Amino acid sequence: MLIAILELVYKINTEIIKIWNANIIPSPISVFILIIRLFETKMLIYAILSSMRRLVIGYLISVVIGSIIGFLMIHFKYIEENFSSLILGLQTLPNLAWVPFSILWFGYNESTIIFVIAIGSIFSIILAVDSGIKNVNSIYLKAAKTMGAKGYKLYSNVIIPAALPNIIAGLKEGWSFAWRGLISGEMLVSATGLGQILSKGKDASNISQVVAVMLIILSLGLVIDKFVFGRIEKSIRCRWGLM
């Protein structure tokens, strides 16, 4: 019904009243027809697989490095005092700002895109690990130490589980930054992927193709959020008795 209403509004404003430019605002039906056509030619399937592979690699790199740096900041006060403000400042940089830097380092290849993905999400993960562990309720720590927990057991049984809600929130934020880095990198490096199809639509002034790719990106983001991060958050809430 929503698509039908949007199509009706489109027809009225482009063909009857003629206040909309058909080259600027796409027809909803034409967008969905184009999506089906892209799937039929398998262009969209290859693009999604290529993009998701780069996204997962870059994101996993950022999670590993971000977690290590976050733990180092907790354990070494010197690192936190001297680098926390810098990390916070770097997080505010848009992913697109890293693209010229990565091209100079790696050239026009896949490593550039993976670097932009990783560097775009790594800082939010560092800050999430740092703030998550810092904000663990001190009562939990005192109770655990009273019962003899220390070192690895203190971390694995108390600190990490208590910090997980904040860490998961940081991982979700890092995932969104990774998506932005992926599309920015693919558009500028012209590698096979969703960003390339988006860029081709822009070059051809094909607004339907641009909107079609945007809808695909939105759909993939919602699916991953629901079936990956959503399930993790649900299991954490169940463990803490919040469900």
Rank of each mutant, 00 (worst) to 15 (best):
A149S: 15
G201W: 00
D130F: 07
N206M: 06
N137W: 11
I159V: 15
L198Q: 01
I159S: 01
P161K: 01
I207V: 15
L182T: 08
Q196A: 09
S199I: 09
M187E: 08
I159M: 13
I183H: 01
S199E: 12
W175R: 03
Y155P: 00
E186F: 12
A212G: 02
A149I: 09
Y140I: 10
I183M: 05
T146R: 11
A143T: 15
G151N: 01
A149D: 13
V189D: 04
I139R: 14
D203C: 02
A212P: 01
T192Q: 13
P165K: 00
G201Q: 01
L198E: 03
S208H: 06
I207C: 12
I160N: 02
A143F: 03
V129E: 12
A204D: 11
A212N: 07
S124D: 11
S176H: 02
N166H: 10
K150R: 13
I160W: 14
I139P: 00
V213S: 10
G195L: 06
V189L: 06
I160F: 15
E173H: 04
D130C: 03
E186N: 10
N137A: 07
N137M: 08
W179R: 04
M147K: 05
V129G: 09
A191Q: 09
N206T: 00
Q209K: 14
